[in-house]
Design a protein around this nucleic acid. Structure first.
Lengths: 204, 204
DNA sequence: TGTACATCAGTGAACGCGCGTTCACTGATGTAC
DNA sequence: TGTACATCAGTGAACGCGCGTTCACTGATGTAC
């Protein structure tokens, strides 16, 4: 095993830069994010990142893509732990969405409230679509296979908006009354809120 | 009437800077906002703003306060045009919230998704509290005077989250299917969505 | 009504700073023979 | 197994840029007498 400090070549600077970027984002916010700051955090000269990312946008774009993938993973983890019916799975998925927003404040902001990543990038748009598609499918399963398209659209919009609203408000500290509740009560409250908007499961 | 171009003294540079700042925000986003850019837009040397705003944060803080006041005005305007019962007034208020987010994208982002304004500032925190208080009162009126506090909290959170979620998702272009609908259909869809989460009016 | 003076809002040159970007370089690694 | 060489990932000095901030200044306005 080699000691990292002895190495002139970093080994996996690309990965290290992504981790550094996440930290940088956490501490400085999207608005104060710099490439030089990331290089410093990764323990590397400020010119080194150029070998891996064209510019700050490229780094933020890759980080946003990674963010979307983790965002989806969290939701899937929650879903897989839920009772195997569309309603409970959808509810779990929503709780995962909110949990991600709370635990990864900076990433959540990056993927939902920033113009800095390049959304035309193939990797990023693929990752974001995967996340959104998963959510749509969950709602569709819940609305029932032959619900009219118009109803499905309303269901999707309502469910997504509710979950996203809770996540964004908690994330920006505006629903402190929820965040302040003890673990179990918080969960119960979130369930009550999200549950209120889920379409009733159809039985056909 | 004096011609503005003949004046060495601007007349009301403070106000002009606020308007310039809103434009700057609209075009460059919170992330690219500069004081020098605002000065240029206001047609004034870059050192002039210092007489009115200590720094960029002070200007953004004043702008955010102004944003919250307008945000509340729009909601009140909508409410006053609605049938005078708690449910319709609340619904109207929510539509006003969403309307503001759509028409003042930059301001909405500034007040809900940016760390740059100083929220400890008295004027700003007063303006934001006024907006939030108004909303809480609307929900409280709808929940009925003697609803248990816990239910009111859930009602507030659910209503706020739903409205805010729709507003934020439309604002960031993620509910295109709603934005793309023709005027009347869009309104109907929004009503259906927001209405779904409003607590039933109590009659006691 | 006129003059002197204080006040205030603006100018524009200058500064230091951190940023992104470029460039010649150097050290480490992998491969051909 | 050893040597020569190409490749690649890093360094660090240098640059130009736009930023915020400071400063001596100047032009306009209001007021005292």
């Amino acid at each position: 095993m080699e000691m990292a400090r002895d190495k002139y070549h970093h080994g996996d600077l690309r990965q290290a830069l992504l981790e550094a970027a996440e930290e940088e984002l956490k501490e400085k916010g999207v608005e104060g994010f710099t490439l030089r700051g990331c290089a410093k955090r990764a323990g590397v000269s400020h010119a080194a990142p150029a070998h891996h990312f064209k510019d700050a946008t490229a780094l933020l774009t890759a980080l946003a893509a990674l963010g979307f993938r983790r965002f989806l993973e969290v939701q899937i983890k929650y879903k897989d732990a839920a009772p195997p019916n569309p309603r409970d799975r959808m509810l779990a998925s929503g709780l995962g969405y909110i949990d991600f927003a709370q635990k990864h404040t900076a990433l959540f902001r990056l993927i939902f409230s920033s113009d800095r990543p390049d959304y035309a990038d193939a990797e990023l748009s693929h990752a974001s679509e995967a996340a959104f598609t998963d959510m749509m499918q969950g709602v569709r399963a819940l609305s029932g296979g032959n619900a009219p398209e118009e109803k499905v659209m309303i269901d999707v919009a309502a469910t997504w908006a509710m979950v996203h609203g809770v996540a964004d408000l908690i994330n920006s500290g505006k629903l402190k009354m929820l965040g302040a509740l003890p673990e179990e009560a918080r969960r119960k409250a979130l369930v009550a809120i999200v549950d209120r908007v889920l379409p009733p499961a159809t039985t056909d």
